[in-house]
């Protein structure tokens, strides 16, 4: 099976800080990959490069064989790469329902109508399904500011999947969520994504979550990928333990 996403030799520096050194990553269709590493290790920079928010200095990114290196987020998302954010990027003045309606509206039509009422029956039906898949029904009319952190994450992710992406990057889906809610949250996310062919790359600090939900783990350290294998192997790696997980045996 060929790779869905293939990043080769990505390099990026911000002034004196090197955030990516020769980063090469590949993932297959439908694969679940965890990205681990300390703050500043280069995980978010990698996500930003793949989605076009940050342009790599060197290297290339292929999606299904198409070169998407350096394209802006708007175009990258149209190629089938979506993401969620560590700090959910929502429309604060709208309800969760309107946030998702907006995302659906943009995803489903090439030219948005300037006159027809935004709440068309088709979109409302699809919105209904999306709310159900992400268990967001009871929060649909709340104000964004009043939502619990985990629900905000869900809305953010639900908006990201409206385009039915081939690749979904989740930036710390469980950060800022109470410890006992992390597993239920990941369960909702993973069941909502189940059934599709979408490959999921998620940045995560909680190793139990990584061990449970990832099929493969990439460990980042100082802008490099220092390990790339199945979870038990990576989490048992001595270098990873010294630099990332902090467990010294």
């Amino acid at each position: 099976m060929t790779a869905l996403i293939e990043a080769r030799g990505l390099h990026k520096s911000f002034g004196a800080v090197v955030a990516a050194r020769d980063v090469s990553v590949m993932a297959r269709r439908g694969e679940r990959v965890g990205l681990i590493g300390n703050n500043g290790a280069g995980k978010t920079t990698f996500v930003n490069m793949v989605t076009g928010y940050v342009k790599p200095d060197r290297g290339s990114i292929l999606l299904d064989g198409i070169d998407i290196t350096g394209l802006p987020p708007r175009v990258v998302s149209r190629h089938g790469v979506s993401r969620s954010f560590q700090m959910p990027q929502l429309f604060q003045s709208m309800t969760p329902e309107e946030n998702m309606l907006m995302a659906l509206g943009i995803a489903r039509s090439e030219r948005l109508s300037s006159w027809r009422d935004a709440r068309t029956p088709d979109l409302m039906a699809e919105l209904h399904d999306l709310l159900a898949r992400f268990r967001l029904g009871e929060y649909r009319d709340r104000s964004i500011a009043a939502l619990p952190g985990g629900v905000r994450k869900l809305v953010d992710i639900a908006m990201a999947v409206t385009r039915r992406p081939k690749l979904l990057l989740l930036d710390e889906p469980t950060s800022g969520v109470a410890a006992e809610e992390k597993f239920p949250l990941m369960d909702v996310i993973m069941s909502a994504l189940a059934g599709g062919e979408v490959a999921v790359l998620f940045v995560e600090h909680d190793m139990e979550i990584v061990a449970r939900y990832a099929e493969r783990v990439l460990a980042f350290y100082d802008g490099r990928v220092i390990a790339d294998d199945i979870p038990t192997t990576v989490l048992g790696n001595e270098e990873v333990q010294r630099y990332v997980t902090g467990i010294v045996q």
Partner: peptide, 25 residues
């Protein structure tokens, strides 16, 4: 217009330009 999808998109752009771009608009 204000109630149309494009009208709503204006409000969305005011709230969060980055998200609008990431949604593909």
């Amino acid at each position: 217009h204000f109630d149309s999808m494009r009208g709503l998109l204006s409000l969305a752009a005011r709230d969060n330009e980055i998200r609008v771009e990431y949604l593909g608009a």
